[in-house]
Design a protein around this nucleic acid. Structure first.
Lengths: 220, 220
DNA sequence: GGCCAATGTGAACGGCCGTTCAGGGGGCTT
DNA sequence: AAGCCCCCTGAACGGCCGTTCACATTGGCC
């Protein structure tokens, strides 16, 4: 049983865009995302977004409570997927912290190359969300950071990592932030036209991360 | 010969804030900077800025041509000083690329810890400038990146750096961007309350950078 | 004392903002 | 055929925006 009752014959011959329009809510999300990416949340108006998907401003409020909720929806979906990806990466690769770190950085970098616009919006526009919604996103970011910190601690305790020490101490949280910062902000400058493709970027950043934490050579 | 003609006796007894007000243009700059840092350029109004320094909106235009010029003025001064600092750092430390890299990272990190709010504003609000003004700032950023790329190339050619290779090639520009990204974005999360002070942060990041580029141990 | 340049005031301008809401279909279910 | 729900329209609301301008006010200089 298909959901649609009666398929009109004429429907088959219409242009794709009209034959099966995305659910309006999807069209709105897509249009808003594109505009936020290009011009920034505060200067994109509700009228802009709705005009871009052929509707008028009032229609937005049939699908979202406010412009703020719309932004939150967009960022949340990006951020949630990233968090899930990071968890999967470290879960499916055995116990060696070196392999975990490599898998984590690899997935994180690939994602930020491939979906650099989504990442850019999620990182750049988060500040415009109101307090309760921004807390939600920050929790997810902290969770990702903590995955990395845990890997580092396991590596240190297992004797396979030898991270930089200052005055006899090492600050694993700062190191984790440094690694995340350099991977996250690939999305600010990377373009497919550069010397390195996504795969090569991933390898480069994995190698830099392993060096930064002083990973001992992996026994084959 | 002092600039001010006749010092009134009464002036000595007035409250400091009234006795010697900063040049209004300085007060405006400071107020605008504080508000941009806290709330972001597009949502801070000219009226907000001027009220914060005890004036009305119209007075802004005796000192700046537009709100846009005001932002450009603020970012330019931060960015210009950073560029100058980076040049000085590598100029005054001999010829060894390892020493140059260490000096560069040290200065860059110290600056981004100490003046993290200035750095944050310069990095976050640049996108609101109009095209001609933003080009000016990007030139300065590129110049800083090129200083770093030059150090890396000298190190590779001199055989003291062994940076990561992917498929037999190394992308020095990507490595430079990675190092800059992790140092720049310290300003997004570092606070004086953390485990590491500025000096320790600098040492940590210098060590990570030297490891990332595969610097050979320095002969003492 | 008279002049000038610098600087501040606050009303006014034209325009855009996010959001609301009464009104109007279109198509599915009964 | 009737009712209903979903969705869209577009005017309207109250408010704020960056900028301009005619008009004070000040303080140094001849």
């Amino acid at each position: 049983m298909t959901k649609r009752k009666s398929v009109r014959i004429a429907e088959e011959t219409l242009p794709v865009a009209e034959r099966e329009p995305r659910a309006p809510v999807e069209a709105i999300r897509a249009a808003a995302f594109a505009q936020f990416a290009e011009r920034g949340y505060p200067v994109v108006t509700v009228r802009d977004i709705m005009k871009a998907c052929g509707l008028t401003q009032g229609a937005l409020y049939n699908h979202f409570k406010s412009k703020d909720e719309l932004l939150h929806d967009i960022i949340t979906s990006t951020q949630g997927e990233l968090e899930r990806l990071c968890q999967q990466a470290v879960a499916g690769v055995g116990d060696d912290p070196r392999a975990k770190l490599a898998a984590f950085v690899r997935v994180y970098v690939m994602r930020h190359c491939r979906m650099r616009i989504e990442a850019l919006v999620a990182n750049r526009e988060i500040g415009w969300l109101d307090a309760t919604r921004v807390a939600d996103i920050r929790r997810s970011r902290r969770a990702i950071r903590d995955i990395l910190v845990t890997i580092l601690r396991q590596g240190v305790e297992g004797g396979v990592f030898d991270p930089p020490q200052v005055d006899g101490r090492s600050d694993l949280k700062a190191i984790a932030m440094a690694l995340l910062d350099q991977c996250t902000h690939i999305s600010m400058w990377y373009g497919p036209g550069g010397d390195f493709g996504e795969e090569q970027m991933a390898k480069l950043y994995v190698e830099m991360a392993l060096r930064a934490v002083g990973a001992k050579p992996q026994s084959v």
